[in-house]
Design a binder for these strands. Structure first.
Length: 480
RNA sequence: GGCAACGUAGCCAAGUGGUAAGGCAGAGGUCUGCAAAAUCUCUAUGCAGCGGUUCAAAUCCGCUCGUUGCCUCCA
């Protein structure tokens, strides 16, 4: 079995062969830290978390680099306008660096809740101004960029022969869509800023050979990926909406500077919409993760997102969310039953037996993941494996070895590869779990003695306390 | 306006040439002190519509309709 990845450069599924196996260099565009993370971030970083986890699972040594954009990303994603961080800093009456740290922290908190693994390197743009200046210098020296009278540095897109190799746009098309007046000192309207001269009012600025200023948005990704991974990345990830202009610009900068291909496999995830339309601050359907998690288990969101393929558009709506929550709940219950049974009946013996029906599903799961990370199919196979487990559990004499075998596979697939945190219900402050366990045991003994008045009473009291008791196949489970 | 993607059951969603996975919701059995859980069966003769290619099409080609995205906010 070999991994196949849909490469946006070739627009085809290709077999994945890293440049220097077993090492894999993966770069993913990180957040611009000027606000709390939203649903779109969840989809993006869950997508690449799956890629990262699966590559690790296949035995690759992955260096996963993700940037933190804390300077240079201008409102409008263009070459003029306010810096997003500075704008927010003025709004909150804080230093730009305070804003950046605040929302970087917030970002990682949310990603932790979604059980997203930390990248191997998380690097801030402001920590790499020197690298960016060096890269810009190289581009100017090689004639791919030019310095204007007022001290701006632009990339000369007409010097790059493969313009549009990723987005498949031509310079002619670009002209048609132009709605914003280009800066006056550009030689050509599609040239983009590498370095901008700053006036005194600009809060963040650095010395450079072209005067005091700040970097353009695109250059940070090139500078940091070249520094930490090398001239050619095995994988570059990001959202499809950044395909143009951001990723296109990265390619032009990097390849012009190094003379080598910048990226082997470009992976783009598709958009997330809310109730059928694009999520936007101005549209009133903007969903911030911190708000959402007040009423939604982050694992349900993870499940919801992984139930559709990363390359398909995904709509977020109440009905679909509810069905995902129900489906996830059933999966979780089946896994609890399995784990509880194995825990209670573990004889500690090594188990070398193999089971054909389980092995077939095991292969199907891995085959689905190999096929461009097809998580919807992978999840459907989890249900089929759990069905075998449930049937075995309801046997009068369950096959312990088989259940142990299944448990190991489920642990690996559900927790490690799909990244679901299956740890039990979390307590807020005081630990009342043992108390609940005691009442459950007590009720079990009443039931055994057929004292159903008492057993039902315990169930009712617990229910009034918000604890729903359900008698599972192998014993009682409870839900708060 | 230019470019691109998508349209599969009540809902969500796989499937890119060989006869429609899985989840949710629904119906009916089995099991059970009751309830729940689990399990079994059923639920799209059809994949937006119309043509075409083929022994064979959800899948390839053409047209039409619809939705969404990028070129503005935004991952």
């Amino acid at each position: 079995m070999s991994l196949r990845i849909y490469n946006r450069l070739s627009r085809e599924k290709e077999e994945f062969t890293p440049l220097n196996p077993p090492f894999v260099g993966m770069y993913v565009c990180g957040p611009t830290v000027y606000g709390d993370s939203h649903l779109g971030h969840a989809r993006s970083y869950i997508t690449f978390d799956i890629v990262y986890r699966y590559l690790l699972n296949k035995g690759y040594k992955v260096r996963y680099v993700q940037n933190i954009t804390d300077v240079g990303h201008l409102v409008g994603d263009r070459d003029s306008g306010d810096d997003k961080i500075e704008k927010q800093a003025k709004l909150e009456k804080m230093e730009p660096v305070e804003i950046a740290y605040k929302y970087e922290k917030s970002y990682f908190e949310d990603m932790d809740k979604l059980n997203i693994l930390k990248p191997s390197i998380s690097c801030r743009a402001t920590g790499h101004i020197i690298e960016m200046i060096d890269l810009i210098k190289t581009l100017v020296d090689k004639g791919f960029a030019y310095v204007t009278d007022i001290g701006n540095v632009y990339f000369d897109v007409r010097s790059f022969k493969d313009y549009g190799k990723l987005s498949r746009r031509t310079l002619e098309e670009a002209k048609d869509g132009e709605r914003i007046e280009a800066a006056k000192d550009k030689r050509y309207r599609e040239d983009f800023a590498l370095w901008k001269r700053a006036d005194a009012s600009h809060m963040m600025q650095w010395d450079s050979p072209w005067g005091s200023g700040y970097p353009g948005w695109h250059i940070e990704c090139s500078a940091m990926s070249l520094k930490y991974i090398g001239d050619t990345l095995d994988i570059h990830g990001g959202g499809i909406e950044n395909s143009f202009p951001h990723h296109e610009c990265e390619i032009m900068q990097s390849e012009s500077a190094t003379g080598k291909p910048f990226v082997k496999y470009f992976i783009h995830h598709n958009m997330l919409t809310v109730n059928g339309t694009k999520m936007g601050k101005s549209l009133g359907n903007f969903i911030v993760l911190k708000d959402l998690f007040k009423k939604l288990d982050p694992m349900v969101l993870r499940f919801y997102i992984l139930q559709s393929h990363y390359s398909s558009p995904l709509d977020f709506n109440e009905d679909a969310l509810q069905s995902a929550a129900n489906g996830f709940d059933r999966m979780k219950k089946s896994i609890f039953s399995l784990e509880n049974f194995v825990k209670a009946n573990n004889d500690g013996k090594e188990n070398n037996a193999a089971y054909e029906d389980v092995d077939k599903l095991k292969n199907d799961f891995l085959e689905a993941m190999d096929d461009d990370f097809n998580t919807p199919i992978a999840i459907s196979i989890i249900y089929e494996i759990l069905k075998i487990s449930n049937i075995e559990l309801s046997n009068p004499k369950p096959n312990i070895d088989k259940l142990k075998y299944i448990k190991n596979i489920i642990d690996s697939f559900v927790s490690e590869i799909l990244g679901f945190d299956m740890s039990d219900i979390k307590n807020d402050d005081c630990n009342i779990n043992s108390l609940i366990e005691f009442l459950i045991d007590l009720r079990a003994s009443y039931r055994k003695n057929k004292d159903f008045d008492m057993s039902d009473k315990i169930r009712d009291v617990l229910k009034d306390s918000g604890i729903i008791l359900k008698d599972g196949v192998d014993g009682t489970s409870y839900i708060r």
